[in-house]
């Protein structure tokens, strides 16, 4: 598994910030998943252009106080792929 791989959304899902729920949600046919803050921050940077490594770097920059995030991002990417939210392009 290379950190150069590029994640993109499964077109079935739409990520959106929901003010009323104070969180990111994933919307899909007749359903909604409320994301926890770290999952939301990672997915918000998935755009079908940036690689996993670039996403990790962007997060590291946004949250300078956090320890190394690479492991967390990789783990989450696997979960997100299993859930079919994202695919690797």
């Amino acid at each position: 598994m290379s950190v150069q791989r590029i994640p993109g959304f499964n077109p079935m899902f739409r990520l959106q910030w929901e003010k009323a729920q104070d969180s990111y949600v994933l919307l899909y046919p007749e359903g909604m998943i409320k994301l926890n803050p770290s999952a939301g921050e990672i997915l918000a940077r998935v755009d079908g252009q940036r690689s996993e490594a670039e996403i990790t770097a962007a997060l590291q920059q946004a949250f300078p106080d956090a320890d190394s995030l690479a492991g967390d991002v990789r783990e989450f990417m696997e979960v997100a792929r299993e859930q079919n939210w994202i695919r690797f392009l």
């Binding site: 009323a20 729920q21 104070d22 007749e30 359903g31 909604m32 998943i33 409320k34």
Partner: peptide
């Protein structure tokens, strides 16, 4: 619909 379990309201 996925039940998010959050039932508090900001309104």
């Amino acid at each position: 619909m996925n039940r998010t379990g959050s039932v508090s309201s900001s309104l």
